[in-house]
Nucleic acid binder design. Structure first.
Lengths: 158, 158
DNA sequence: TCGTTGCGTCAACCTCATTGTCTATACTCG
DNA sequence: CGAGTATAGACAATGAGGTTGACGCAACGA
């Protein structure tokens, strides 16, 4: 039967949220409080070479000020550490600390566990097929999350 | 091959965003500027009986102030209209206007068109299978759309 | 050496949400 | 009836997350 397009959208969003919320909660349990996907993403991006605030901002598609703020948070938590570039004293170059790498590993682990749970529920084959379908649709990994809230729903009540 | 759980999450988010963004853009083309999913959802909820700001807030899981603001926007655009309840002058009771119903219909249409495009790309069967899989996972329709939240604080309540 | 460009920071402001406070109205119970 | 309580909605302050503008300073290129 032809389902509705709106339901499809909601299903996708719901799936994402189920994973993201569960991951965030699990990360908190494991000692990484208040970590949100942005942080994971930012750390990866820094690790991949975007080692200054300006560069991180460009990579993430946000202003350098916003990127600097995120870096400030990460630095405060000890996930990254930075020092002035001896070659160019305008820059502060950041590196991901062991703690930062640990967070990345834990996050990955948590997500993989979640995925494994899904695979158990509907079958590994089916899950791969779902991923395949989404990939075939040309869905690209989003890097910008300032989505205009499309729906606001009550997840709190039940 | 075993994909990563994080990629799965991103794929779902990306899918949702692709649909939501396209729908929002198409709605703008059709004369409904700046309409986001929240608005559609709010109108539906009002139509379903949540005819005061407080009640809408409760249904949507947001504060009454936030709900009042949304209603203010909808009223300004002519999607809903309200008047003081003669039985209880504290309340302003809202009803969805014809314009509001038209928006709902258009939104539905736009989403269905988008879904049809996806069905063309990967096959109707495959799409249904994807929806089936997501449903089987017990994904519930979310109503809280601050969803970009992979990287934004998404409330961890449940 | 002198512009130009880029980095990082300060400051102001926007949006969307929150909580707290307050007035007015309604409801309930002794 | 009248007192006390609960509720609607409005106002204000606050917070999170982002933006733009301005600016000092360092680097670089002609």
């Amino acid at each position: 039967m032809a389902r509705s397009g709106a339901d499809l959208a909601l299903l996708l969003l719901g799936g994402f949220r189920a994973l993201a919320d569960a991951a965030s909660a699990e990360l908190a349990v494991r000692g990484h409080e208040k970590i949100r996907p942005v942080h994971d993403f930012a750390i990866r991006t820094i690790d991949a070479g975007a080692d200054t605030a300006s560069e991180l901002g460009r990579q993430l598609g946000v202003s350098k000020q916003a990127a600097a703020k995120t870096i400030g948070f990460l630095e405060e938590r000890g996930y990254v550490s930075g020092e002035i570039d001896p070659r160019d004293s305008r820059r502060r170059r950041f590196t991901v600390t062991d703690e930062g790498h640990a967070l990345l590993r834990t996050g990955e682990h948590v997500f993989n566990e979640l995925r494994a749970q899904w695979a158990e529920r509907i079958g590994a084959k089916e899950l791969e097929r779902l991923e395949e379908a989404l990939s075939d649709l040309g869905i690209r990994i989003p890097t910008h999350f300032d989505a205009p809230g499309y729906f606001t729903d009550s997840s709190t009540d039940e």
